[in-house]
Simulated scan of single mutants.
Amino acid sequence: MHPLMQLIRPVWAAPEQIQVVSTTRIGGVSQAPYYSLNMGDHVGDRPAAVAKNRARLLSSLALPDAQWLTQVHGTACVEAQRDGVIREADACWTSETDLACVIMTADCLPAVFTDGERVAAAHAGWRGLVDGVLEATLAQFAGADMHVWLGPAIGPSVFEVGEEVRQQFCDHLAQSDDFFLPSVNQGKWLADLYGLARLRLSVAGIDRVSGGDYCTYSDKIRSDTAGLNKNHLDSARFFSYRREQQTGRMATLIWKTAR
């Protein structure tokens, strides 16, 4: 791994040949406001910087191939390929070894799935979550022995939404109301993306769900790494669209190694 790159790995009970990482904003070459490990090729960053960041990540993981997506806040789940084509979808899956399924986020929820044979990754913002992107991804599996990990997303204490968002979730599942609290701002609610995702997965019969331990909006860099680059590195460990608007994207990858 590149000496400055910081990656997050899940603590879960998936088979040992299943590998997962989520990037932070640390360890890349992009300049402000995308400083520094920006994986998003659609946010205004220099294409050469994004390409170098992606190559650096895959090289550090010894990964020969990855399926990158153009995400549209939808529910399509496509099969990952090794052809280098960037496909339009919000989830992808594969049963091949050493081929990573990749999604990008900067507050939305990254979710990865495996049954030990297949792996998948899904990008679940509130629109994709309410429309069923998790269920569409689960449809690529037989349903037995599933493991799901929820990567870094915006936390429930800061994710403010309007009444129309809460109503859409509650119209689909009445229990969704348990994951909204009134905001101090009239007519607004604080939504728990992690809780809403766990509810949808539970209704789908999936109970082995881990993760949900971060907040991309408010999480801070550890004090022992805060001095890596005092001229550019701020205190935020993750990119956050809600916090910065013009910002980069993290990547969450899942892949299967040979047994």
Rank of each mutant, 00 (worst) to 15 (best):
A120Y: 04
D115Y: 09
V158D: 05
L129I: 13
G116Y: 08
M39I: 07
A62M: 01
F239P: 05
R25W: 05
T70D: 04
T247R: 02
F141M: 11
G84Q: 10
L109S: 03
A204T: 09
F141Y: 05
L134I: 08
G211Q: 07
A139T: 01
R200F: 08
T257I: 07
V158L: 06
F179T: 11
G125A: 10
P3V: 05
P15A: 04
R9N: 05
R237C: 09
I8R: 13
E164H: 09
C170S: 11
E163L: 11
G128P: 00
Y241V: 14
P64E: 00
Y217N: 13
G44P: 10
T252A: 07
S210I: 01
Q71P: 03
W93Y: 15
R259S: 13
N185K: 08
A144S: 15
S95G: 15
D115T: 07
F238H: 11
Q71Y: 01
R56E: 14
R9C: 11
E160G: 10
R200M: 08
S59G: 09
G187K: 07
S223E: 10
L4I: 00
D207K: 14
P182L: 08
I206M: 09
A191W: 01
E244D: 15
D65Q: 11
R54Y: 02
V20D: 06
D107V: 06
G116A: 06
V72C: 04
T137H: 06
V85Q: 12
S176C: 15
C101L: 05
L201C: 04
A174H: 10
C77R: 07
H73T: 01
D90F: 08
S59N: 13
S210G: 04
E135L: 15
D234C: 04
T75L: 04
L63R: 07
N229V: 04
A13V: 01
E117G: 02
